[in-house]
Computed example of a mutant assay.
Amino acid sequence: MLTDKHCKNAICPPDKKRARFTDALGLYLEVSPTGSKRWFWKTYSGGKEGRMALGSYPATSLADARKARDAAKMQKADGIDPVLARKVQKLKSSNPTGDTFKVVALEWYAKQKDRWSPGHAERLQRQLERDLFPWLGERRLREIEAVELLATLRKVEERGAIETADRGLMLARQVWCYGVATGRVERDITADLKGALQPYRGRHFAAITEPAQFGELLRAIRAYKGGPIVRAALQLAPMLFQRPGELRAAAWTEMDLDAALWTIPAARMKREKEGKEYGSPHLVPLPTQAVAALRDLYRLTGHGTLVFPGERSHDRPISENSVRTALITMGYTPEVQTWHGFRATARTMIAEVLEVDPLVIEAQLAHAVKDANGRAYNRTQYVNPLR
């Protein structure tokens, strides 16, 4: 076995690359020709010899090297690979920014922000700052318990914001998952809150899906005596069943009435930031009735940019409330039929009554292909079957 005197006097002969001085139980001191001395512990895994560095001499004394060896042996006896455990620990300690909830949340936010639309990014940041940071921001992520997170989210529930509390939990889950991935915390505590919050049941947009009742609605739209711009939007909504924001902000440059095709730029679609910037435009075939309605409307608004300009400013489209109010005037309250509900009406009746291929309907609705791999390759727009 080595002594401190042996370690201090150990040298490497000039004709060797290195010299080893064995202590006991796999511990040895390796000396290089330059005089540097390092401690190693010999390991075996899968029949192959390896080694684990334990520090440099004299910074790590003989006694300290033996303690480090014994600690590594205990880890191995417990089924833990000491070399791998040390690598993991180094990775965990490589987060110089800190490990408070606020630090981890903002780090996660910064890495994801470029994928989101500006509006979505602003909403998430506002919720972090309003609902989570005041109570959890300065706490170390690994020290926060599930009951603390629950108490924080119940403050949101207490003001009647059930949906916001549910979104807050989903937001916290993303932060904890990121914390686990970066070694700031061992596990995701948000899983412990399952069933602890008031259940949020998302509201569906009211929609008529019975053919006879829908026929009555179409006749009411045809008889509507309101302004021509809103009347045209009312007529086109059930024909084209696009999202209200996409229809009301339509520009004449997007319309090719001769080709009976409406091309909505990717930037105007409901997509993530990448899809808006690099995605394909959405193609909407125009039926004969839609072309006729648009030609009539062109005589009124074709001199401007927007298909459905507002009354006060022709640079801004009609509001979503304009069609909502028209529906209410006809006796169709938000509990019966909504503008957005025309999409559900179309999805249900075209599939059940006309028995059209669901893929064709989903393409017209601009819904993403749900198969994880399909989106990258299936870019079919189904323009012809929709005419």
Rank of each mutant, 00 (worst) to 15 (best):
T325E: 11
G302A: 06
T301S: 04
V88A: 14
I264W: 08
K194I: 10
R69M: 09
K194E: 15
T34H: 14
L294A: 10
V336N: 02
E148Q: 15
R201I: 07
Y377W: 02
D4W: 06
Q242V: 15
K370W: 02
A24S: 15
W135I: 09
E186N: 08
I144C: 06
G35E: 11
P334E: 08
L354F: 13
E138C: 10
R316N: 12
R387P: 01
W252R: 03
P285E: 11
F40L: 11
Q213S: 13
A344C: 06
S117I: 00
A260D: 09
K155S: 12
P358W: 04
S93R: 14
N321S: 10
T333I: 08
A237Q: 09
Q127D: 13
L106H: 07
P287Q: 12
R159L: 01
F214E: 00
P134Y: 10
W116C: 07
G179W: 09
L62S: 04
F21C: 03
A237M: 15
R295D: 11
K194C: 11
R115V: 08
R231M: 08
V284H: 01
G195C: 11
P265N: 06
S61W: 03
D296F: 00
K67A: 15
E148I: 02
A259C: 08
K113R: 15
R126S: 15
D371C: 06
T345F: 10
Q213W: 06
R379G: 09
N9D: 15
Y382V: 04
A24K: 12
E311D: 09
K67W: 01
P317R: 03
V307A: 05
L197M: 08
A326E: 02
F241I: 00
E122M: 06
S313G: 09
K90M: 14
G26H: 02
M1H: 14
L240Y: 04
V88K: 14
G79C: 09
Q381W: 05
H120W: 07
A346Y: 09
T182C: 14
L234N: 01
Y28V: 08
P118E: 13
L25P: 01
A290T: 04
R271T: 00
W108F: 06
Y224Q: 02
Q127A: 13
F205C: 09
K42T: 14
L27T: 11
R184Y: 10
G310H: 04
A59T: 13
T43Y: 00
L300G: 08
A59G: 07
T209I: 12
A181C: 05
P134G: 10
A72K: 05
V83A: 13
T209C: 12
G331P: 03
D188E: 05
I162A: 05
P228Q: 01
H367T: 00
V336H: 07
T43V: 02
M52V: 06
G304M: 08
P281H: 12
R222L: 08
A207L: 11
T348E: 01
A366R: 00
E320N: 15
L306D: 03
F101H: 04
P82V: 02
G160A: 02
T288S: 15
E122I: 00
L300W: 00
L128N: 05
R130F: 12
K273N: 15
R38L: 12
Q364W: 03
G179P: 04
A85K: 10
P13M: 00
T380P: 06
D64F: 02
L84F: 10
E138R: 13
I229F: 00
Q75L: 15
T3M: 07
K8E: 14
T288V: 12
G279L: 11
Q235L: 13
